[in-house]
Simulated assay, not measured.
Amino acid sequence: MTPDVKVEPSSVAMDEIWTVERVKALGVMTNVETAAQILGIGRTVAYRLAKDGEFPVQVLRIGHSYRVPVLRLLELLGAEEG
């Protein structure tokens, strides 16, 4: 990670807590903003990390969009299916 990037937990309301079941319900892919919220990373920092190839999980560049495989999020959270 670059030294000038500060990663802090985002302020998520209690009804916005991401459970494993809720993450699994996202399907195969999600966007960087959702992945960042799940990981407690702010939007601006998340896009900077994705652009620099330093996001905590795999990020795919598809056209002008970034997509995050949900399986990679689940693996990071220790909740992947066997």
Score class of each variant (00 low, 15 high):
Val68Phe: 03
Asp52Arg: 15
Thr30Met: 09
Gly27Glu: 06
Leu71Gln: 13
Arg43Cys: 14
Ile41Thr: 09
Asn31Leu: 14
Arg61Asn: 04
Glu75His: 09
Glu33Pro: 03
Asp52Gln: 12
Phe55Gly: 15
Gln58Glu: 14
Ala35Tyr: 04
Ser65Arg: 10
Arg61Val: 07
Leu49Lys: 00
Ala36Arg: 07
Glu75Ala: 13
Tyr66Val: 09
Thr34Cys: 06
Gly63Phe: 10
Arg48Pro: 01
Val70Asn: 01
Glu75Asp: 08
Arg48Cys: 12
Tyr47Lys: 07
Gly53His: 11
Leu49His: 00
Leu74Tyr: 10
Pro69His: 11
Ile62Cys: 05
Gln37Phe: 14
Leu71Asn: 09
Arg61Leu: 09
Thr30Gly: 07
Asp52Lys: 14
Val45Asn: 01
Phe55Asn: 07
Thr34Asp: 14
Gln58Tyr: 08
Ala35His: 14
Phe55Lys: 03
Ala35Met: 00
Tyr66Gln: 05
Val28Asn: 07
Thr34Ser: 10
Glu54His: 11
Leu26Gln: 14
His64Gln: 11
Tyr47Asp: 01
Val28Tyr: 05
Leu77Pro: 11
Leu39Gln: 12
Ala50His: 04
Met29Val: 13
Lys51Ile: 05
Val28Ile: 15
Leu26Trp: 01
Arg67Thr: 02
Arg43Asp: 15
Ser65Phe: 06
Tyr47Val: 08
Ala36Cys: 02
Gly63Tyr: 03
Gly78Gln: 09
Arg43Met: 06
Pro69Cys: 14
Gln37Cys: 06
Pro56Ala: 06
Ser65Thr: 12
Arg48Ala: 14
Pro56Ile: 02
Leu74Thr: 12
Ala25Gly: 01
Ile38Glu: 00
Ala36Trp: 02
Thr34Lys: 15
Thr30Pro: 13
Gly42Ala: 10
Leu73Asp: 00
Met29Ile: 14
Gly63Arg: 12
Gln58Leu: 10
Ala25Gln: 02
Ile38Ala: 01
Lys51Cys: 13
Arg61His: 08
Val57His: 06
Glu33Asp: 07
Ala35Thr: 01
Gly42Arg: 13
Arg43Leu: 10
Leu49Arg: 04
Ala25Thr: 04
Ile41Tyr: 00
Val57Cys: 11
Asn31Ser: 12
Leu39Ile: 09
Thr30Leu: 07
Gly42His: 15
Arg67Ser: 01
Gly53Pro: 02
Val45Thr: 10
Leu74Met: 08
Ala46Tyr: 05
Leu26Gly: 00
Asp52Thr: 12
Leu73Trp: 02
Met29Asp: 11
Leu73Phe: 08
Pro56His: 03
Val57Met: 05
Leu49Ala: 07
Leu39Trp: 00
Tyr66Phe: 15
Ala36Asp: 07
Leu39Thr: 14
Leu26Ala: 00
Glu54Phe: 05
Glu33Tyr: 12
Ser65Val: 13
Val45Lys: 12
Leu71Arg: 14
Leu76Arg: 08
Leu39Arg: 02
Val70Leu: 06
Ala79Val: 13
Leu26Thr: 08
Val68Glu: 03
Glu75Ile: 15
Ala35Asp: 00
